[in-house]
Design a protein around this nucleic acid. Structure first.
Length: 578
DNA sequence: CAATTCGGGGGG
DNA sequence: CCCACCCCCCGAATTG
């Protein structure tokens, strides 16, 4: 199929490795990853890339290391295969979790030699520095290109030996493409109007006072909160313990000062306190110091980390690019004459569940481009869309109580295969086994609980011990609670992770269809993309996004009736989308 | 004194 | 009222 060849197949593959001087060495590869022609030395990586056809798939040690300098030198790569990323995915699939994944370690494993440890991951602090730490060095005397070829060929063989080699090949290609996209988005940056952001801060927070004092509006609100508790009272709204004590003195006992709990009580301090909290958050997380640290020359540049989360979802390194509050989106404004195409995949996770589970009923519900929850509620929930949505989400999250749970029975009756799919994943997790996404990303193993004390990370969450202070549960009860928590994790993993599989393929397809346009991908957040483009390209970009969603669905899940529609908006400002 | 945890709140 | 899943970020409080 034509679509297939776009992402996976027949493009010449070349290996690229750093040379001892500043240059690189490259050579062509055959389809088993062996050298298929002479090695060429090139003094300049960008020139080396430019000399070969655009469709060439570059096999290299690390995209994060090689690609950003290439981009800065003006060289674009359409396809690559990232050997260290692949090593991580293959090791996980093989259940070898402790093993280091650098090229050096992979090569050492092939030779039965001691494996050097991986570099610790970058700590999120200063702006963009993807690999400040540099590569793990190869054993002395090892030729980098030869090591690369050897590890790559071995990876092809390991992939071929898997139960679903085609899926893993797709995943490796897609994850590699993800790293290309990540580097390009980091380079492009998100259009950001500093002046608009400052206006907004002044409007909401008031004047800033020098010397680290809180801005005017926060100071006033803090004052108002104190006054509400009576004369002489002094309450700092940003100190939860302070707040709880103050309400206690006022005769309102609270278990915490969380917003939902505050909202349930009747006291004049509540309203200004909640306003203070919202503005305080804006001030500390997206205020003036954030602007200074992250926005330069009209762009917000964050560094994206594909598969930063175990499920394959991306994270960012600093700047909080995936948590931009709605109010702040007003500052995301297209350049003059340009537009933002903002596209949001509709009901992605339920549609993914329909695709992976093969549930005939749920596939019928997902076979249209319209609001899937509406269709679902018409068929099974007496037209109550909200209940239908909560029931489905509850099933995917492993809800243990509440309203949605009551409707789970109805879901189970109507969509038995879909519910069984997530139930199976939960049971696997509870019994300590691993689960995988559709393309074969493997969940991390359960962390062993330490019998002599320290709980593991899938701990308590208070199933039995809501009140009673100290945890009264026996080790057996704690183990059972941990197993249930693990079950909820694996239950959700197969859906969230398979959605991340789809998103990678979608990004790869979209990226390819933007070649030749001036349009740039500038933002990606789980199920949402933003493309910045000249106004006259907006229509084509919108079509390209829709096409990419559909292509990704077919590539990821094969032939399926499930549709993967997007809600799209062409806007000048992000805040005006949706 | 530095590092870690907690509580609160932002995103999907 | 929330919950249940995956995250990031900040300042205060606590701990080594």
């Amino acid at each position: 199929m034509r679509l297939m060849s776009q992402v996976s197949a027949e493009h010449a593959r070349w290996a690229l490795a750093a040379d001892t001087d500043q240059g690189v060495r490259v050579c062509p590869l055959d389809d088993r990853g062996r050298q298929a022609g002479p090695v060429r030395h090139e003094p300049d990586a960008a020139r080396a890339v430019g000399r070969l056809p655009a469709g060439t798939r570059w096999v290299w040690r690390s995209t994060a290391e090689f690609y950003p300098p290439l981009l800065r030198a003006g060289a674009r790569v359409e396809r690559c295969y990232d050997v260290e990323v692949a090593e991580g995915l293959l090791l996980a699939h093989e259940g070898r979790f402790g093993a280091p994944r650098s090229l050096a370690a992979a090569w050492a494993r092939l030779h039965g030699l001691p494996e050097p440890a991986d570099r610790p991951p970058d700590t999120p602090d200063a702006p963009p520095s993807l690999f400040g730490s540099g590569p793990v060095p190869l054993a002395a005397g090892t030729d980098p290109l030869a090591a690369l070829l050897e590890v790559y060929a071995a990876q092809l063989a390991r992939t071929a030996a898997l139960p679903h080699p085609g899926r893993m090949r797709l995943l490796l290609a897609a994850e590699s493409a993800g790293w290309l996209v990540a580097a390009e988005m980091g380079e492009a940056g998100m259009p950001w109007r500093e002046d608009v952001h400052r206006e907004l801060l002044t409007e909401l927070l008031g004047e800033r006072y020098p010397g680290g004092l809180e801005p005017q509006r926060l100071a006033e609100l803090a004052e108002e909160v104190s006054r509400a508790f009576g004369p002489g009272e002094r309450v700092r709204p940003d100190r939860p313990a302070d707040v709880v004590r103050a309400f206690g003195r006022a005769g309102v006992p609270l278990r915490s000062s969380r917003a939902w709990e505050l909202r349930s009580i009747d006291h004049p301090a509540v309203e200004p306190l909640l306003r203070y909290r919202r503005l305080y958050r804006l001030h500390t997380a997206h205020g003036w110091s954030w602007l200074r640290a992250w926005v330069r020359d009209g762009r917000f540049r964050s560094s994206y980390l594909p598969a930063g989360a175990p499920s394959g979802r991306w994270t960012t390194n600093g700047g909080g690019a995936l948590q931009i509050p709605r109010v702040v989106r007003r500052a995301v404004v297209a350049d003059p004459g340009w537009r933002l195409v903002v596209a949001d995949a509709d009901q992605l996770e339920p549609r993914v569940l329909a695709a992976v589970s093969g549930d005939a009923g749920l596939q019928q519900v997902s076979a249209g481009d319209g609001d899937m929850y509406a269709v679902l509620s018409d068929r099974a929930f007496a037209g109550d869309r909200e209940r239908a949505k909560l029931a489905l989400l509850g099933a995917m999250y492993g809800q243990t109580s509440g309203d949605g749970l009551r409707h789970l029975a109805e879901l189970r009756r109507r969509f038995p295969a879909a519910v069984a799919y997530v139930d199976d994943a939960a049971r696997e997790g509870e019994q300590g086994r691993l689960v995988r996404t559709w393309l074969g990303r493997t969940c991390p193993p359960a962390v062993r609980a330490d019998p002599h004390g320290g709980e593991d990370t899938f701990d308590a969450e208070g199933e039995a011990a809501a009140d009673a202070g100290a945890d009264e549960r026996s080790p057996g009860e704690r183990g059972a609670a941990a197993a249930r928590a693990r079950g909820r994790f694996t239950r959700n993993f197969v859906v969230q992770g398979s959605a991340a599989d789809w998103a990678l393929l979608m990004l790869a397809a979209l990226r390819r269809s933007l070649v030749g346009l001036r349009a740039e991908l500038v933002f990606f957040q789980h199920d949402e993309v933003i493309v910045h483009c000249p106004a006259e390209e907006a229509e084509r970009v919108t079509a390209a996004v829709r096409e990419a969603g559909q292509v990704a669905g077919e590539l990821t899940f094969g032939t399926t009736p499930v549709r993967f529609p997007f809600s799209t908006a062409v806007v000048g400002c992000y805040a005006d989308a949706k």
